[in-house]
Every structure is written in C-alpha cells, then in structure tokens.
Simulated scan of single mutants.
Amino acid sequence: MENLVGRFREAVRAAGATAPDADLEAAGGYLIGRWSEPQRQYHTVAHLTAVLDVVDQFAELAPHPERVRLAAWMHDAVYDPRALGDANERDSAEFAEGLLATLGVPDATAAEVARLVGLTAGHATEEDDPDGELLCDADLAVLAGNDEAYAEYTAAIRREYAHVPDEDFKAGRAQVLKALLELPSIYRLAPLREQWESKARANLERELKG
C-alpha cells in the first residue's frame, strides 16, 4: 500500500497540490481505506490499481495524465452497490473536488478531475477529450481480460450485488451488456481499441448468451 500512497502523492503534487507531503500521504491512505470498504467485491484496491496501471501505460495519449490519474483514484471513492442511477459517480465527483481543494490543488484542476470522474457514469465522452477517453478506456479494460480474468470479474460483480435477486440481476446486467455492445466502439483511443475491442466484444456476447 505504501507504493500506492506514493503514486497518489506524486499525482496530486503534479496537479499543483500545495499541502505538505504528510497531508498528501494521509489523503492517499484515506482513499485506500475507502477502496477497501467491506461492501466492495469488484470496486476494490485491485480495480483501482488496474486502472492506474493502464493510465500509466498509455499516459502519453493524454495531455494531462496527472488529472486522469487523480480521476482514477476518485472515480469510485464513493461506492454503494445499493445506490440508484449515477449517484455513486456524482457523489465521487463532488468528493473529489472537495478533497483536492483541501490539498491545495487549483480550483480549475479540481473541477476538471471532478468532470472526468463524472464521465465514468456512462463512459460517454466528447470527440476531443483524450483525458476522458483514457480514463473511460482504463476503467473498461477489464472487459478485454482473458477467460479466467473475465469470469473472476463477473463473479465479483455478482457478489457486489448479492442483495439483488437472480432474475432482476440478470435483467439489469443484460441491459448493461447490450448498451456496451451497441456502442460504435467500446474503447475510444486507437491503440487500446486495436488491442482490446475484439476480445471485449467476444466476452460481452458470451456473457449475454450465457
């Protein structure tokens, strides 16, 4: 976890934070605590780390990778599987803006990170938004996993929604899968699309049929 805290400190400092390192590290530790809450089965520290790793791998595709990294940290900072609609994303965006402000990040940058967080509600970006595209593509990278990894992902999602009856869960999940398959492209950035699109679609179609 110490390495993760360091990654947060570096990202928030690159975004203009003026707070002392000790405060930045405390904030990173607090965020890790949120990502470790007991109601989480998929939206965990492992998911956070996976998203950060994709952002780091393709950072050159984003004009402001430090903002994308912070948005990755914040995008599920508030997570309640029982929440309705995009409440988690809205609350996470509001949380992000407030936390970053306390760390001395410029208001405009904090607001932009909050905007990026909000995009993860529907993973819809404008045409000229490479920062948003990288965040959304990184968040959806799990869809292109190998068969074992994808099975682990779907099992974790089901555990997260254990309170939902099987029939209702299956219907809701089918809506999500169909919406993703109806997109012109699941991944927006060309290098990621070339690597992941076909595998992700195959995984989604297999789950939908299953």
Results as ranks from 00 to 15, higher is better:
R158Y: 00
V142I: 14
R90I: 00
L4K: 00
L134P: 03
D91K: 11
P81L: 01
Y79V: 02
V45C: 04
T154G: 07
D21K: 02
L61K: 10
G28D: 08
R40A: 09
F58T: 06
F95C: 01
L180C: 03
A162G: 05
P65G: 08
L208T: 07
Y42P: 13
K209M: 04
A62I: 07
A110G: 13
V45R: 00
S198E: 15
E126V: 12
Q41L: 08
I157D: 00
P191A: 14
L100V: 03
G118D: 15
A149Q: 12
E133Y: 11
E133I: 00
E37Y: 04
D56L: 08
G172P: 08
A77C: 05
K178H: 04
Q175K: 04
S198L: 13
Q195H: 10
L140I: 12
A50L: 07
R115Q: 12
V176A: 08
L177S: 05
R34A: 06
E167Y: 00
T18P: 02
L177Y: 01
A151N: 03
E89G: 08
A110T: 12
P38G: 05
E10Q: 09
K209T: 07
E66Q: 12
L140S: 15
A19Y: 09
A174Y: 08
G98L: 11
R188P: 04
G132N: 12
R9Y: 06
Q39A: 06
V78E: 15
E10D: 14
L181A: 06
G98A: 14
L140R: 11
H43N: 09
D131C: 11
D168N: 08
K199S: 13
P63C: 11
E89M: 05
K199C: 13
S185Q: 10
G172V: 00
W35C: 08
D129V: 09
Y79F: 14
G29R: 08
T49R: 04
R13M: 01
P20C: 00
A162R: 05
T125C: 14
S36Y: 04
F95V: 00
A22T: 15
P165N: 02
D107N: 06
A11K: 02
V12S: 03
M1I: 03
V176N: 13
R7A: 02
D168E: 06
P63Q: 11
P165L: 00
V51K: 03
V68G: 05
P165M: 01
A124R: 15
D147Y: 05
E126A: 14
A27V: 11
V68E: 13
E148C: 03
L116Q: 12
A156L: 12
H123P: 11
G33V: 01
H75D: 10
A155Y: 02
G33S: 05
A19F: 09
A179Q: 11
A179H: 03
D80P: 14
P130M: 13
E152H: 06
Y79C: 07
T109M: 04
L143H: 09
G118Q: 15
A71G: 11
E66H: 13
W73M: 05
A11V: 07
T154I: 10
Q41H: 11
D23C: 07
G16I: 03
V176I: 06
P184I: 09
D137E: 15
A149W: 12
A14F: 03
S198R: 13
A141Y: 12
M74P: 10
A171I: 00
L116F: 13
L140H: 13
W35R: 06
P165R: 00
